Structure formats: structure tokens, C-alpha cells
Simulated assay, not measured.
Amino acid sequence: MFTGIVSDIGEITAFTPTAQSQLHRLRIACGYDRATIADGASIACNGVCLTVIASGMSDGKDSAGRTWFDVDAGAETLGATTAKHWKVGSKLNLERPLKIGDELGGHIVAGHVDGIAGIVQRDDLPDMARFELKTTRELARFIAAKGSVTLDGVSLTVNTVHDVLFSVLIIPHTLNVTTLGAWRAGSEVNLEVDLMARYAARLSEMK
């Protein structure tokens, strides 16, 4: 489980097909301590929970001394998330799993992307940015004003909702320490709806 509080920005340094045609292997450079990354560990990458299969330290000219870890992205991940747009040089919001006793700074996030939201409009306001996004009608029913959503792995509070459109306001700190500052109209982002909203809707359907 995660909280949607980004702890690093990683960069894809390799993106290659494996022997199995349905898999692509990614190497991601990051600022994490190599000693803390174990094979089999989970790391959320732009909100997608991926499993570490190898890790080490870079010795190349462009990334010497940086930690790297490898993950495999399968057909489902590539088809259902923005991973299909990832390439060498792509920047990703990273988060390590929640530990017992950690501060819950955002909200409970599973790292299981529900779908892709499209950015309809960006408005740069004094000291912040407002984004309006569009999702599917199926997912829109789980999004409520003042509720929580996870966008590209970042826990955010919903500002307004109108049918399949919703908006979020991003403060300068978040714009600076995540990839959200690069969002533009037309961009696609990973969307995970609030687990509590999903369970509440399911319980309501069973009455």
C-alpha cells in the first residue's frame, strides 16, 4: 500500500522488450539508497505498482553513482496505463510502500491504476495551477468534490466535479517535487480512484 506522497522522481534509462513479447523491461534511475531496495520489493511508478527484479549502482557517464532498479511492465500495464507512452528519458513519480508506523500524509493508495484521465485545461494561477481533467462515466461516479484521487501517483484533493469532468488545484511545492509541473492540456495521466469510494459504492449496490 502507498499514500500518494511522492518521495523521488526517477528517470527511465532503458526500455526494452524481453524475450517474452508481452513484457518490456524498464531500468529506472533514482535517488534511493541502493541498500534499501530488495529484489521483489514494490515501487509505485507514476502510480503503477511495479516489482523490482534487480537493482544496482550506475557507472555510466550520464548517471554515475545513481541507484537504478529494473522492473517488468506487462501487456495489461502497457495497455491500461500511460506506461504505453513511456520511453527513455521519461520522468516518473516514485513512492516506496507504506510501513507500519509511517505517517499517512495522503490517503490509502493501492498502486492499481483504474484508468487514464485526460487533461482538458491548465490554468496557471498566482502561486498554483488548476487542472481540469476528463475521465470515463464509469470512474466519474467514484469522484466527489473534496474527496481524494491519485493522479500519476500523487494524492490530490478534488476541487470541483461536473459530470465526467473534475478539477484539482496544485500548490507550488507539489509542482516542484513531482512531474505535475510538466502537465499540459492534452496530456494523459494515470488515475486511481479512492478505495473508500469504491467500497462504499459496492456496498450500496448490494443493498
Rank of each mutant, 00 (worst) to 15 (best):
M1F: 10
I5M: 01
V6E: 07
D8N: 13
D8E: 09
G10L: 06
F15Y: 12
T16N: 08
S21L: 09
H24Y: 09
R25D: 01
L26E: 01
L26Y: 06
R27K: 14
R27L: 06
A29F: 02
G31N: 14
A35H: 11
G40R: 06
G40I: 08
I43K: 09
V48Q: 09
C49A: 15
V52T: 05
V52P: 01
A54C: 06
S55P: 00
G56N: 08
M57Y: 03
M57D: 13
A64C: 10
T67C: 15
W68G: 09
D70E: 15
A73P: 01
A73D: 05
G74I: 08
G74V: 04
L78N: 01
A80E: 02
T81M: 04
T82C: 15
T82R: 10
H85T: 14
H85F: 13
K87W: 06
V88G: 08
G89Q: 10
S90A: 15
S90M: 11
K91W: 08
N93G: 12
P97W: 01
L98F: 15
K99S: 11
I100T: 13
G105Q: 08
H107P: 10
I108Q: 12
I108T: 12
V109K: 04
V113K: 07
V113T: 02
G115I: 05
D123C: 11
D124K: 09
M128S: 13
E132F: 13
L133I: 13
T135W: 00
T136M: 00
T136K: 00
R137H: 07
R137N: 02
R137F: 02
L139K: 05
R141L: 11
F142L: 09
A145F: 05
A145L: 08
G147R: 06
V149D: 00
V149N: 02
L151T: 09
D152C: 14
G153E: 03
V154K: 06
F166M: 02
S167F: 14
I170G: 01
I170M: 08
I171F: 00
I171P: 01
I171H: 01
H173Y: 13
V177F: 14
V177R: 12
T178K: 05
T179N: 14
T179W: 00
L180M: 15
A182E: 12
R184S: 11
R184W: 02
A185I: 03
S187P: 05
S187F: 10
V189M: 07
N190V: 07
D194A: 10
A197P: 06
A197F: 00
Y199C: 08
A200Y: 05
A200D: 05
A201Q: 15
M206Y: 04
